[in-house]
Amino acid sequence: MFKRLSLPDAPAQKTVIVYFDGRQVTAKDGDTIAAALLSAGVEVCRTTPVSGSPRGPYCMMGVCFECLVEVDNIPNVQGCQVLVKEGMQIRSQNGARRLG
């Protein structure tokens, strides 16, 4: 649902490789996790604890908590607030978190 605007005058940005549920995602330096997922065509980053309904990024500014993902084993990370890093392992959060 999103694509990168092709801008001839934009400075070239370094490519950053991250993984979403094990799948390789090519992001750009400066992308937040949520932006990188959207640009790679990932629409769903979690399912809700209540009904299991699929959710994707909604507000992109840290308010809605819809883009919660697990990042390098840390759960409940707001994907729109954290920048991608080379090799980052991102996992979708399905249902409720377990303790421990």
Binding site: K3, L5, L7, K28, A35, L38, C59, M60, M61
Partner: peptide
Amino acid sequence: GSGQILLKSVGLVP
């Protein structure tokens, strides 16, 4: 707002 954030920050558009 999210559309505008994606536009400004990384040039992502519909």
